[in-house]
């Protein structure tokens, strides 16, 4: 198991390097001078030169790259022009918010998907299955921000159970404020999860161990919870892992809709204020986050399903 994980970790190294390199080139992909764009046409040449120096743009490309790597190793993500603060300390405030939001939406995805998938796997032509189809069809087509706006309208304004946006200071208020955003992100992932889980459950129902459990007279309930759901749950975990990118993308949009001060809204602030260093750092952290989650998913998968460790 340890050897298996060490191998998996080694395989992730080139991906991490690639993510870092792509984020480095972001600053250089922009047409023109990023420092000039960031400060605007009216800025004095001296202040532009100062920013160029601060961002290291006055050095040669290989040297810039080496410095970038050196800074990253020391946990230094540069300085934000817009916030006038080191990005690492901004990240320390923003990242937990987004992580909590993504975790919460992953939990909600499972809470909604498991009963839906389980019902439509056992009753493929029942009302629930038809409802799931319709729900999937509509939700999959609807943009995330539209679902968010509708949830705000119905559960935040018409029947004001949840706050329509914002992020209060107290912990209880924060938890309450995250419910609707997390639900919005979750609804975008539910169709994929329901499909995957349902297929896994149907396959599990057709397997020999279920047939054997039936033939020895086990009732349907223990079969469903003890055998089918346990096995389908393994593929549920891996779907969730693959979908983390989609959940993070959802967080980016939904933090805008609900005015949640997370990584996504920081990235948007960086974009709208032409703060290149901030955009670069946010993209990098999002990328690294996904790599870490992929690793975690593989680990969880190997733990849940011993067969995965063999290959």
């Amino acid at each position: 198991m340890l050897r298996w994980f060490a191998r998996r970790l080694l395989l992730a190294i080139p991906v991490v390097w690639g993510v870092v390199t792509i984020s480095f080139f972001m600053m250089h992909l922009a047409p023109g001078d990023p420092a000039r764009t960031a400060l605007g046409e009216k800025a004095s040449n001296a202040s532009v030169a100062a920013l160029r120096h601060q961002w290291g743009l006055d050095q040669s490309m290989p040297l810039q790259y080496l410095n970038y790597l050196k800074q990253l190793v020391h946990g230094d993500l540069g300085t934000s022009v817009y916030y006038h603060a080191p990005i690492t300390s901004l990240m320390a405030q923003r990242l937990p918010v987004t992580i909590i939001l993504v975790v919460l939406s992953a939990i909600l995805t499972m809470l909604i998907s498991v009963p839906l998938a389980s019902r439509s796997a056992t009753h493929p032509n029942g009302i629930a299955a038809v409802a799931v189809r319709l729900f999937n069809a509509v939700v999959q087509g609807a943009p995330t921000f539209f679902i968010g706006a509708m949830l705000i309208l119905f559960l935040g304004v018409r029947i004001a159970i949840f706050p329509a946006g914002g992020y209060p200071a107290d912990i209880g208020g924060r938890a309450w404020a995250l419910v609707l955003p997390a639900l919005t992100i979750a609804l975008g992932t539910v169709p994929i999860m329901v499909r995957g889980l349902r297929a896994a459950m149907i396959e599990s129902y057709g397997s020999e161990y279920v047939a054997f459990a039936r033939s020895k007279g086990l009732p349907e309930r223990p079969i469903r919870y003890g055998y089918v759901l346990r096995n389908a749950g393994i593929s549920g975990v891996s779907i969730l892992g693959i979908q983390v990118g989609a959940l993070a993308s959802g967080a980016l949009v939904i933090e805008q809709v609900f005015a949640i001060p997370g990584m996504g809204s920081m990235l948007m602030t960086g974009i709208l204020n032409r703060d290149y260093a901030l955009v670069q750092a946010c993209t990098l952290v999002f990328g690294l986050l996904v790599v870490v989650v992929y690793l975690g998913t593989d680990l969880a998968y190997a733990r849940l399903d011993p067969r995965a460790r063999l290959s």
Binding site: G245, C282, F286
Partner: peptide, 20 residues
């Protein structure tokens, strides 16, 4: 693997921002 490590939207939005 590297391209898919970035969340889809985040990479697209960052690229559109950089190119205008």
């Amino acid at each position: 693997d590297i391209v898919t490590a970035f969340p889809f939207f985040i990479l697209v939005i960052a690229l559109v921002f950089l190119m205008g």
